[in-house]
């Protein structure tokens, strides 16, 4: 089921976009050791700091699609890039994609006052459902990355076994292997 965000809530979320996105990026980076976080958040060169750049350049676009009504077309690609990084770093799976859920808490605290004044409850649960949708994409991306990693590892082991056989002088023709690559 595709949820949509009510216009009035949408408007206020977009107004607070900069603040929400900044906090979200900072929270994302806060999972790294503090000595590294400074570098990850301050170095703006995309080649000197691919981790910081990837999250900070993606967060805004992900946010836009989240509060919009449409599908997560761009988000899917961007989230994949972000999660691909987390999937090989020193995180448990839950830690790796937790940043998606953080968005709920950050959004809530940002619009708390207005939400109370206007008596929004159901409206916000729609946003939260869309965030859950993001989490599912993140979960798929995480598994895709890990499975790719396992496949690469298996391929390396196979290649090495082949080299060992050839090195032992068994006389297997190289062409067979290369053509099978």
């Amino acid at each position: 089921m595709v949820y949509s965000v009510k216009a009035s809530l949408q408007e206020i979320l977009l107004r607070k976009k900069t603040s929400i996105v900044d906090k979200w990026v900072q929270r994302f980076l806060s999972y790294y050791p503090s000595e590294s976080m400074k570098f990850l958040s301050s170095q703006k060169d995309r080649f000197a700091n691919p981790v910081g750049y990837t999250i900070s350049s993606s967060a805004g676009a992900i946010f836009d699609e989240l509060v919009g009504d449409g599908d997560f077309l761009v988000t899917e690609l961007l989230l994949k890039d972000v999660v691909r990084i987390r999937a090989v770093q020193e995180f448990l799976p839950s830690q790796a994609i937790r940043f998606v859920f953080d968005l709920k808490e950050i959004m809530r605290s940002e619009i708390e006052k207005e939400a109370r004044e206007k008596g929004w409850r159901d409206e916000f649960s729609e946003v939260e459902s869309r965030i859950d949708g993001l989490a599912l994409i993140a979960f798929d991306s995480y598994m895709e990355s890990r499975e790719k990693l396992f496949k690469i590892r298996i391929d390396e082991v196979k290649a090495r076994s082949f080299q060992t056989i050839v090195a032992s002088g068994a006389g297997i023709n190289n062409r067979e292997k290369r053509n099978g690559d």
Partner: peptide, 17 residues
């Protein structure tokens, strides 16, 4: 040198500085 190591950049582990 601190932020020039590819392992530090890719891992965020300060002991890789």
């Amino acid at each position: 040198c601190a932020d020039k190591c590819h392992f530090f950049i890719g891992s965020g582990d300060p002991k890789n500085m």
